[in-house]
């Protein structure tokens, strides 16, 4: 959770072709509104802090009750937090806790915006497996948008998961 770890996380997540946006708490509502302005609707898991949604333009949908088919509607985006993040690999770790919801929510919609607090960043994967509060929760580690290199080794982003991943990173303290 040092500034160095945050800087490494920002650099490494960027290497995965995710959009990475460091910002201050005061800038957060405006930044999220900008990132999500193009969505037809924004899916929110239970426990999303109200300040994240204070300035959102598109309508919001409660993530708890949506079916997979409903989540497949065109133009949908999802806004979540995470459980932890890994600096060395630029990885987000979700465990279904507050502001994260079911695994489907960050899989079916085409755009995922994730808020990371600097205090959630650990150095590497060995630190992560020790820091996880409960390893038996359903865990998803996300390192950049979904991708394939199966056709002539050309990288194509967004095969099945969200084609666009934006990470908003709040500073330490």
């Amino acid at each position: 959770m040092t500034p160095e770890l945050t800087a490494l996380f920002v650099a490494r997540a960027g290497d995965h072709h995710a959009g990475v946006h460091p910002c201050t708490p005061a800038e957060l509502p405006g930044l999220l509104a900008t990132l999500l302005a193009g969505a037809t609707a924004v899916v929110l898991p239970a426990g999303t802090p109200p300040q994240w949604t204070a300035r959102l333009g598109p309508p919001t949908l409660p993530g708890d009750t949506l079916t997979a088919t409903e989540l497949d509607a065109p133009g949908l985006a999802v806004l979540t937090g995470c459980a932890l993040a890994v600096a060395e690999t630029g990885t987000l770790v979700l465990d279904g806790g507050a502001a994260q919801g079911r695994r489907l929510l960050t899989l079916v919609p085409d755009h995922h915006v994730c808020v990371v607090r600097a205090a959630q960043i650990v150095a590497d994967v060995p630190d992560l497996v020790i820091a996880l509060p409960d390893p038996t929760r359903p865990l998803t580690m996300i390192s950049g948008p979904s991708a394939t290199s199966d056709i002539e080794l050309n990288r194509v982003e967004g095969v099945h998961g969200p084609r666009r991943l934006d990470i908003v990173c709040l500073p330490p303290g």
Partner: peptide, 17 residues
């Protein structure tokens, strides 16, 4: 450094999966 998605799951989780 890390593949895009790693899933770790234990048994069944009511309401998820």
């Amino acid at each position: 450094r890390m593949n895009p998605y790693t899933s770790i799951f234990t048994g069944v989780t009511p309401g998820d999966g």
